[in-house]
Simulated assay, not measured.
Amino acid sequence: MGAHGGDVAVVVPWRPSPDRLPLWDWVRARWAAEFPDWPILTGGCPDGVWSKGTAVADALTRTSARTVIVADADVWTPGIPTAVDEVLAGRARWAMPHALVRRLTPDATLAVLDGAPLDGQPTVETHQGMPGGGLVVVARDLLDGVPMDPAFTGWGQEDSAWALALTTLAGPMWRGTADLTHLWHPPAPRRSRSVGSAESLARFRRYVAASGRPDEMRGLLAEFCPTPLEGSPTVYRYRNDNTGDEVEYPQPNARLEMLPNWTRIAAPEPTSEPTTQSTVGRPPVSEPKAAWVEYATSLAQDSDEAAEILTLTKADLIDRYGKEN
């Protein structure tokens, strides 16, 4: 089934403000024009401190869609249909359509709002998108069992913590190659460019410690979720069209993805058997710099160290934070 059909809803955590209203007006119109059959639901939280997890949960009370897109109110990507198709077809339980994030300049954002094309606009920066952030497509049963943590307040760390929980309990995400464009607005208050608050950083470290340990992750989620996801993580499954042989991998297999006689198929439903997965938070050396920045930030002792991390090269990060414990 194409991504323009299916039981899909768009969930947007949202709190109105004068500087962000024009951005959401533009993004909402884009959603409505390109995917008119998908309901668009904004979720909020009580006045006071902002909680993205609370806002997402609020929106979910108004939809029973089997596939949910959790999207920020200031982003857009052409990769949405492909990512949705992966989840609808059962080939992935959660997916991100984008690899790079293009953050537009203030003038470029104004030009887009005035009708200029989104592509080709100048950017403040372009960087690897952090897992769990910007726009994520999730099967509803997975979202109910691995919700975004409402205890993260203000800005920062909630997206990365959610990605660690999803990976640990549901398996790796499917990731597309499209760019995600982020419309400019004044940044939210935060402790530093990479750390929202000391409390959020401390809570994120708990997710890093539980990463790859399903029982520990379920215990962490149980603090706010009555039904943490049970079972073992989903795998990537492939079938040989010539022989009928099927194989499984914990990550996408680049070679089989390219061979014409191999097809990625929906994996069996996760079982309730205990898992022996023992992956830790430290990424492989082959992972991009963004993954090492995220990991190093989780170990930072204070905001000064977290800010310094952003200035280091990948080699510096591996040398400083990549040693075995």
Rank of each mutant, 00 (worst) to 15 (best):
A290I: 04
L310C: 01
Y238L: 06
E305I: 06
S303E: 15
A307E: 15
V247E: 10
E269V: 12
E305Y: 02
A254H: 12
D304K: 04
P270Q: 11
R282P: 01
I318D: 00
P260F: 02
A315C: 04
P274Y: 07
D319N: 10
E257Q: 13
P270N: 12
E287K: 11
Q277F: 01
S286D: 13
N242M: 09
N242T: 14
E248K: 05
G244L: 06
R237D: 05
S286F: 03
A266F: 10
R282Y: 01
P260G: 08
D245S: 12
L256Y: 13
E246K: 10
E308H: 11
N261P: 00
I265M: 11
L317Y: 00
R282H: 00
T275Q: 02
S298R: 01
T297R: 10
E287P: 02
T311Y: 00
L312H: 06
L299W: 07
I318R: 04
L256I: 02
R239D: 13
S303Q: 14
A306D: 05
N240Q: 06
T313I: 02
Y249N: 14
L317N: 01
E257T: 12
Q301W: 03
T279G: 10
I309E: 01
T271R: 10
T271G: 15
D316L: 03
V280C: 09
S298H: 00
V285F: 02
Y295K: 05
Y236L: 03
K314D: 04
S278I: 05
D316V: 01
S286C: 07
Y295N: 04
T276P: 05
A307F: 03
N253D: 15
K314E: 07
I265H: 11
Y236E: 07
W262N: 07
G244I: 13
R264G: 08
L317Q: 01
W292R: 01
T279S: 11
M258L: 13
T263A: 14
T275W: 00
Q301N: 12
P283G: 04
Q277W: 02
T279V: 13
T311V: 02
T279E: 15
R255T: 11
E273M: 08
D304S: 09
A300L: 05
I265C: 11
R255N: 08
E248G: 10
S272N: 13
V293Y: 02
N240P: 06
R282C: 08
T276N: 14
E246F: 01
W292F: 00
S278Y: 06
N242G: 07
R237G: 04
A307W: 02
I309L: 01
I309G: 02
S272K: 08
A315H: 14
E308W: 07
A291S: 14
P270S: 11
K314P: 00
T279C: 04
S272E: 13
D245Y: 04
Y249C: 12
G244C: 11
T313Q: 03
T243W: 05
R239I: 14
